[in-house]
Computed example of a mutant assay.
Amino acid sequence: MKYYIIAGEASGDLHGSNLMKALKEADSAAEFRFWGGDLMLAESENIRKHYKDMAFMGFVEVVVNLRKIFNNLSDCKNDLLANRPDALILVDFPGFNLKMAEFAKRNGIKVFYYISPKVWAWNQKRVLKIKKVVDHMLCILPFEVSFYDKWGMNVDYVGNPLLDAISTYPYNPHFRTDNQLDSKPIVALLPGSRKQEIERLLPEMVKMQTLFPEKQFVIAGAPTFASDYYEQFKKGIQIPVVFGKTYDLLKNAEAAIVASGTATLETALLDVPQIVVYKGNPLSIAIAKVLVKIRFISLVNLISDKPVVKELIQEDCNEKNLQAELNNILNNADYRQKMLQDYDELDQLMGSPGASERTAKLIVGYLSEK
């Protein structure tokens, strides 16, 4: 069968690539065309556009880039019709993908949504539109099943694909030596994959190196940027950058400072105590505060439904607060142990690996029923 997959950011590229592997197992005749990144490109060379030309975060950023977004939508619609797949598989990225779902449904193409839009966070009435334009919703967060049920929509819970990625990752036992890292304890810095995130968060993160000289701070570089790009944020501070080795970095880390997003959950599942940080355009944040109706911004706290990790947002994300919280994680044994115990509870909520395989089997099964 022919599968058209749209993933618009780094996390979607990861999950999309694992799903492609599983679809090859479930359907030996699987053919792909996709919007995604390097990981998906490793599974199929039939890429239409890289996610680095698609991802814009924040209300203001979206408005500024509206022309590019509309051009991408037009291009995607034309390409979808030109290739007419058996299934359109949308991976997260709701601003773009819900519009594509509506278009595909109107043109008789079966729509599968893998990794639900966060409709539970704001404007919950979007579920009514989703019910009309999505044939099958495949959820990865436990609480989403009951949420959709309240709106009269049946969905499939497949588990979380991060468990697949973490359990199958080929960890490098020589990570430190291969990357010229010494024996000092490592603190991982994960400033995100978007330009806006990195520019706002990394300058605050790197300050910690001078405050904790006994530790070794290492930046997880985004695949869409070269090493030179990160130099402007270091201000002369010697901090190495590693690319494509985030799981290895976390596996070797004593603590981490992480941009809000999928990486916060990955960090928790790898048992690394962390601080979650976020800084956005002030206007975007002001709008979000009015619209978003959730207690937390990190997936760790959302799934646990309690403050497992500290969230430093906007003006709270500053040198003083980062230093205090990092000191707690590194030097307060009780504080650190409590976070790790909460991680154990999170593990129980998340379930077992196999989300990609379960999702692939459901998609192939549903298509076989037509």
Rank of each mutant, 00 (worst) to 15 (best):
G8L: 04
A10C: 08
M20I: 05
E25W: 08
R33K: 14
A42W: 03
I47V: 09
K49C: 12
N72G: 12
N78C: 13
N78M: 15
A82C: 04
K99S: 10
E102D: 14
G108L: 09
Y113W: 01
V119G: 00
W120I: 06
N123V: 11
N123A: 15
K131C: 01
L138H: 05
P142A: 02
F147L: 00
N154F: 14
V155H: 02
Y157D: 01
P170K: 03
Y171T: 00
N179M: 05
S183W: 12
K184G: 06
P185C: 02
A188L: 04
P191N: 07
P191A: 02
K195S: 13
E197H: 03
L201T: 03
V206M: 00
F212E: 07
A220Q: 12
A222S: 15
A222P: 12
T224L: 10
F233Q: 10
G236L: 08
G236H: 08
Q238V: 13
P240A: 10
L249V: 02
L249M: 04
G261F: 10
T264P: 04
A268H: 06
V272E: 05
N281P: 12
I287C: 00
I297W: 04
S298E: 04
S298C: 01
V308N: 05
K310M: 11
E311S: 04
E315H: 09
E325H: 14
L326R: 02
L330P: 09
M350R: 07
P353L: 06
P353V: 03
A360D: 06
L362R: 11
I363N: 02
Y366M: 14
